[in-house]
Amino acid sequence: MTAVLQTDHLSLQFGGVNALSDLSIEVDEGALHAIIGPNGAGKTSFFNCLTGYYKPTGGAVRFQGNEVTGLDAAKVAALGIRRTFQNIRVFPKMSVLENVLAGGHLRATSNLLSITVASRGFRRRERLLHEEAMASLEFVGLADQWNNLAGDLPYGMRKRMELARVLIANPVVVLLDEPAAGVSSVEREELSRVIRRIHDQGTCVVMIEHDVDLVMEIATDVTVLDNGRIIASGLPQDVRTNPDVIRAYMGRKRK
């Protein structure tokens, strides 16, 4: 299998703290790759390094064979690597539909003149984008919320809206930072269904998730981080019984 997204000996330091050390991960084409690990393990930092929000202090990130280490976040997004945020980041004073349209920013290509005169081409392109945005909302089950302000949505719906916002861009890889954290069991079912459908469409998914049951249920590969290091990786069932993994989780619990 070919790796879509790959890191080589990635490391990240904050002052003297090693948030990530020597991380080499391969995300295969068509994978639903879960990243798990205790709090503070460095999972979010890893995503931030992949998406241009943090500059790794060592190592490299490769996407489809090209090095993308240290690229600006907007450039990374433009390449087709899209993400959600652990602490959901919606645009609160924009409608749900506009949030999703914003996700399709790079697909709205009208120039200033056609915008100013509202040319036929501009209106056609906007209409197509609107239709796709509505389709994305439909996909995550939020179509009836399209005209509400994103800031007024309850937590679980915001999480799904973030997914719709990612999907409209037709990404190659989506990085989901704890998509099911803090939602009700009903919402969790809904989210896992949506994630699986994204994966079924052929989009590569990398997902940080604390919910081990969810991971075991839908992931194809699992990487376990602790203290910025990989302590285990492989198939879900193998990782589950790995003594290092059990120790890492139990160790934290005792604290």
Binding site: G52, D72, A73, A74, A77, A78
Partner: peptide
């Protein structure tokens, strides 16, 4: 920051 994630 979130705007950047939209490719803006």
């Amino acid at each position: 920051d979130a705007a950047k994630a939209m490719g803006i």
